[in-house]
Amino acid sequence: MGEVIIDIRNVYKKFGDRQILSGVDLQVYKGETLVIMGGSGCGKSTLLRHMTGAIKPDTGSVYMRGQDMGELNEDGLDALRKKFGMLFQSAALFDSLNVRDNVCMPLREHTKLDESIMKIMVKMKLELVGLRGFENLMPAQLSGGMKKRVGLARAIAMDPEIIFYDEPTTGLDPIVASVIDKLILDLSNKLSITSIVVTHDMNSVFRIADRIAMLHEGRILQVGTKDEIRNTDNPLVKQFINGESEGPINFFMDSEGYLEELTK
């Protein structure tokens, strides 16, 4: 294993009365693709936001390249943020800007490049996601899959070292989903970018992951390679990857209380 690039140590986080993360420990190695999977509402996105510095942990710490993100000031955090890209669940394109300006935004703000060079760079990034020629469209004119691809082009605009993906394939048709997966693979193989992917799309998990971490009720259940996860002994992980409704993870509330509540 290579160098640890992100080190999450014993992170706890509470929103109101709900305990979202209860003692998460996780290491991300340089150049790998780590998939964090888990059911809806298990704290995957919250964990991701801890890594980007958008949320600070209640207790515990997140180290990025050895720096404690909780102790960095705004400037220090911004310096780190310039080195990573993020693809949001809803793509989060700026509605008021067209595709070109969306992708261009980080370049325009953080570099002093000439407008013509930026134009070329935008073309190259859009070519990577297969959307060259769509520069002048507005986000409202794009389909969901196209938005995600533009979002990805924007995420890689600054040639980041780390990319965070928040449910990159959720809500997309299988073909677009596999295109996105291929892009994620390409980026990490060709440019040796570290990728952290949050998803519950099982096809995608086994296509892209180097390592998989299963998050359940705010804790990491198991971390391992694809094969280790496939042949797991943990009944919770087994139920999740096979998508079974019966098992240790209870979807329904207690059945005894149900009757009582109905007849109350």
Binding site: T52, A54, E74, L77, D78, A79, R81, K82, F84, G85, M86, F88, Q89, S90, A92, L93, F94, D95, M105, P106, E109, H110
Partner: peptide
């Protein structure tokens, strides 16, 4: 408000833009 609920504000922060 729309930018906030569609994660655009967070996207700005993520790009190191205050």
């Amino acid at each position: 408000g729309t930018m906030k609920v569609t994660e655009q504000v967070e996207a700005l922060e993520g790009m190191a833009l205050n």
